[in-house]
Write a protein that binds this DNA or RNA. Structure first.
Length: 296
DNA sequence: ATGGCTAATGATATTAGA
């Protein structure tokens, strides 16, 4: 099973690139952030192309800013839009969506930026992360879980190209890193860093000043997983090719390949037959052993 | 090859990104 996350910085501006990337990378599950579209507008642009490729769609957006989605070629059940118990600014913003995909509870997240440490958005970011931790604690007790997306936090100084550039800035503060550590304490593993402990790996490069060619980047798009998922990881990488050329997002996708669950057991998060199909097309809402064997 | 910001908007400047 291949699961990926990508902040595409406008699904409308990235329409052709997203489809090309799906055909090239062939992910089974995709978490998107910053679609910057309403639910209706997203479907208008993508429903046909994604349906033809076998993807079901769960989108949560209200138009100009934010916007998150999950696409799945397998099951896409028990969709939740928004972060339960999370703060707004001042009202709720579309920064989180969850679905159960082939036995894994998947969250696509766009954590608030924070802007500057003295901006109200910074306190909002920390409160939002605390609410996320509560959700992770509650849901990870029930089965396999992943949180993927743009966390707007560089976990360590090794995750920015020059820490001196971030003196006093958001994304690297102890409070933000503590909020991230609380997710790790709740049982999540940063599976990219676990696989590549000593490598320079970035997922975001500013559009300005040749940052990408110089590899002046940050690793802020994270893939966190409970232990039962983390131990299935075969490979994790950043698809830098998606950042090359013109008309790209300023983020690159992060891709995670998972081995089949032991004995085809996809875990207890799979809903019973009575709650199937509330959010998806097609007939297969429940994963079975044979489904698992069909996964790449 | 990867090139000196980009996208959306009640646009012609502003907000937001990080």
């Amino acid at each position: 099973m291949r699961i990926a996350t990508w902040n595409i910085n406008s699904a409308k501006a990235r329409q052709a690139r997203l489809i090309e990337w799906l055909d090239r990378a062939a992910p089974d599950v995709v978490c998107l952030q910053e679609t910057k579209l309403s639910d209706d507008a997203f479907l208008e642009l993508f429903d046909e192309d994604l349906f033809r490729r076998g993807y079901r769609i769960a989108h949560h957006g209200d138009g100009r800013w934010n916007g998150v989605a999950i696409l799945s070629r397998g099951s896409l059940d028990n969709v939740v839009r928004g972060l339960p118990g999370g703060p707004g600014f001042p009202g709720p913003e579309p920064r989180a969506i969850a679905a159960t995909c082939d036995g894994i509870r998947v969250w696509s997240l766009y954590v608030p930026n924070g802007r500057t440490v003295d901006d109200p958005h910074y306190a909002y970011k920390l409160t939002w992360l605390a609410a996320l931790r509560d959700v992770v604690v509650a849901e990870s007790a029930r089965g396999p879980l992943m949180t993927l997306g743009d966390f707007n936090i560089a976990p360590t100084d090794a995750d920015v190209w020059d820490v001196a550039q971030f003196e006093g800035a958001t994304h690297v503060t102890p409070a933000e890193r503590s909020a991230l550590a609380a997710l790790v304490d709740a049982g999540l593993t940063d599976v990219l860093r676990a696989r590549w402990p000593d490598d320079v790996v970035y997922t975001y490069w500013d559009y300005r000043q040749l940052c990408f060619p110089k590899n002046y980047g940050m690793r802020i798009d994270l893939t966190l997983a409970t232990a039962d998922v983390a131990e299935r990881v075969c490979a994790v990488w950043v698809d830098r090719a998606a950042r090359k050329g013109t008309g790209t997002s300023d983020h690159a996708p992060v891709v995670v390949d998972l081995d089949t669950a032991p004995d085809g057991d996809v875990g207890p998060m799979v809903p019973p037959p009575s709650s199937r199909g509330s959010s998806s097309r097609g007939s297969s809402g429940r994963s079975t052993s044979s489904d698992s064997l069909r996964q790449r």
